[in-house]
Simulated scan of single mutants.
Amino acid sequence: MKKINITKLANLLNGEIIGNKDIEIDSLGQLNEAKEGQLTFINGKKFEKEWATSSASAAIVNADTNLKPGENKAFIKVENANFGMIEALHIFAPPLASFNTDIHPTAVVHETASLGKGVKIGAGVYVGEEVKLEDGVIVYPNVSILDHSHVGSLTQIWSGAVIRERTIIGSHCIIHPNASIGADGFGFEPHPQKGLVKVPQIGNVVIGNFVEIGANSCVDRAKFSSTIIGDGCKIDNLVQIGHNCKLGMFCIMAGNSGLAGSVTLGNGVVIGGSASIKDHVTIGDKATVGAGSGVTKNIEPGKTVLGYPAVEGRFALKQWAALKRLASK
């Protein structure tokens, strides 16, 4: 078990230590669950009252706190406790799954595939024709990367993910287990004799740099052209992104949310959990869609919408308050 003296840890976090400087930290813990020897964090006034009953030996706190650590405990004061805890998590993080060989003997790598320096490929992986994996790509067991796809440097693709043909993935991305990237978009046309006729989906998916796609999420390829996920987007688990959608940079989509086909998100858009966005809708830069909302029309930049159907946030709250008053009569 890794142990780090609290003084050394404070130096690593560029923080100021207050209290007992001889504490040894062996792990991290949640404020109300941490045990002796563990480090926790307090990121706001509303959590400070929980410190009195916490068994943690130390906490990362904001520099402006007036809270005292108490007897035989310590605080590491940093400019921002959230960022301080992120750094601490990196320090204490256990190693990722290891590879005994760079290319597992059970992996199938097409002879035309191109592998950069330091590429690692796990057991049961399939790498198709003309696939290019840049330097430092890690492909965990039982991943399929189909023909003519391109994966940028230092990207990680976790077990069970399927990367369909012609997909382009940038550098420093993380594709979590069982994600589906580049499957057919959901396109069908009613036909008087044949029922529903499948519309061929001949485009692809283009994913930028520093993108994270959660477990069991799906990003469908375009009917033509590309479905695009911009740099820095973070997609939670169980998210659906339909064909021909275009996401700007640094968008966030929480779990169970979904975009129908041809939705456009500006930069910095936040989509709450279980929210649904109708096809061909445009959501402007830095707009927020509340959890469980249903968006049926365009949203202006910077707006917050709530409800089903979604309306401007303040108006939605007034509606709910009015309904509450009616229900109480």
Score class of each variant (00 low, 15 high):
Ser27His: 14
Pro94Gly: 02
Leu12Ser: 11
Glu312Thr: 13
Thr65Gln: 07
Val311Leu: 06
Asn100Glu: 10
Ile6Arg: 11
Leu28Gly: 12
Lys68Ile: 05
Ser171Phe: 02
Asp231Arg: 04
Gly258Met: 11
Ser226Trp: 01
Gly19Asn: 06
Gly122Glu: 08
Glu16Leu: 01
Asn237Ile: 13
Tyr126Ala: 15
Ile213Cys: 05
Ile235Phe: 11
Gly230His: 13
Pro177Gly: 02
Lys46Val: 03
Gly70Val: 06
Gln201Ala: 07
Gly160Trp: 05
Pro94Phe: 01
Ser274Phe: 03
Asn80Ala: 12
Asn142Ala: 03
Trp320Ser: 09
Glu189Pro: 00
Lys329His: 10
Ala74Thr: 04
Gly70Gln: 12
Ile202Asp: 03
Ala56Arg: 00
His191Val: 07
Glu129Met: 03
Gly19Glu: 02
Gly118Trp: 11
Ile271Ala: 09
Asn62Asp: 15
Lys278Ile: 04
Asp22His: 01
Ala327Thr: 05
Leu67Ala: 12
Val269Cys: 12
Gly44Thr: 06
Glu33Ser: 08
Gly272Ser: 12
Lys49Leu: 00
Gly214Asp: 08
Ile241Pro: 02
Lys223Ser: 15
Asn62Thr: 10
Asn43Met: 04
Glu111Met: 00
Ala123Ile: 13
Ile17Val: 08
Val127Trp: 03
Ala310His: 07
Ala316His: 15
Pro200Tyr: 14
Lys278Met: 09
Glu312Phe: 12
Gly44Val: 08
Gly230Tyr: 11
Gly187Asn: 09
Ser57Val: 08
Ala322Thr: 14
Asn82Arg: 10
Gly290Phe: 03
Pro177Glu: 05
Pro190His: 02
Ser57Ile: 06
Val137Lys: 03
Asp22Trp: 00
Ala97Trp: 00
Gln201Thr: 04
Ala81Ile: 10
Gly29Phe: 13
Leu9Asn: 09
Val263Pro: 09
Lys246Tyr: 01
Asn82His: 09
Cys251Lys: 04
Ile169Val: 15
Asn256Pro: 01
Lys49Gly: 00
Leu326Gly: 04
Ala10Trp: 00
Asp22Gly: 03
Ile103Arg: 13
Glu129Tyr: 06
Asp184Arg: 02
Ser98Val: 04
Val61Ser: 02
His90Trp: 09
Glu48Lys: 06
Val263Ser: 13
Glu36Ser: 11
Ser159Arg: 02
Leu323Ile: 15
Lys132Cys: 13
Ala52Thr: 07
Gly214Phe: 14
Ser217His: 14
Leu9Lys: 11
Lys68Gln: 10
Glu71Thr: 08
Lys73Cys: 03
Gln201His: 08
Asp64Trp: 02
Ile91Glu: 14
Lys3Ile: 14
Asp147Val: 01
Gly268Cys: 09
Lys49Pro: 00
Ala52Gln: 05
Leu89Thr: 15
Ser180Val: 15
Ile241Leu: 14
Leu31Phe: 09
Asn256Val: 10
Ala327Cys: 08
Ala10Ser: 11
Ala291Lys: 11
Asn72Ala: 08
Ala88His: 08
Gly44Met: 02
Ile175Gly: 04
Ile207Trp: 13
Thr53Gln: 12
Lys132Asn: 13
Arg166Trp: 10
Val119Glu: 08
Val211His: 04
Trp51Arg: 03
Phe99Asp: 04
Val108Met: 15
Val137Ser: 09
Trp320Ala: 15
Pro69Cys: 05
Leu133Cys: 07
Ile283Gly: 13
